[in-house]
Amino acid sequence: MQQASAGEFAEVYAEHVTPVWRYVRLRLPSDTDAEDVTSQVFERAMRSWSGYDVSRGRVGGWLIGIARHTIADWWRRTGREFPTDLAASGLGEGVAEDDPEGEVLRRLGADEVRRRLGVLTPREREAVALRFGSELNSTEIAEILGVTPSAARMLLHRGIGRLREVMGDV
């Protein structure tokens, strides 16, 4: 196993903090939450850095993997604290009932992009967040989501198509 040296982490952080934060931000309702979670992502990454095996893939993908777990933990911990009244949203029609993240984003998203992303299915939302937030290509997204690159492109296509429907001009 080829292990990463501790000194390299500063460079990794400098290169990846922005895409990681942008991805996290698109998955959480507020900037404050995104800041907290991004900070936790790098804290976890720092703790695990000595065990990171550079031969097992790109460091960006590794960080996004940590971010996905941290976001899932955040929603598990915090998701039930949000009210679940879809009627107040005005955007509730046609959405999956088992998607609390989407519901909260639609109702409480701090900006328009997050409120609109709330109408997507969880997979579409994740694909769009990875593509536009982290600026990963469809092959990298496919690796993270465990699908083929073609399926990742299809998720993006459908997601953006749905965004165009709810936005009208998007």
Binding site: V17, W21, R22, E35, S39, A129, G133, I160, L163, D169
Partner: peptide, 17 residues
Amino acid sequence: GLLWLAAASRPTPPASL
């Protein structure tokens, strides 16, 4: 639409972060 999505998804991280 893509221009809007790209701009809205990629703000500059806050200095506090």
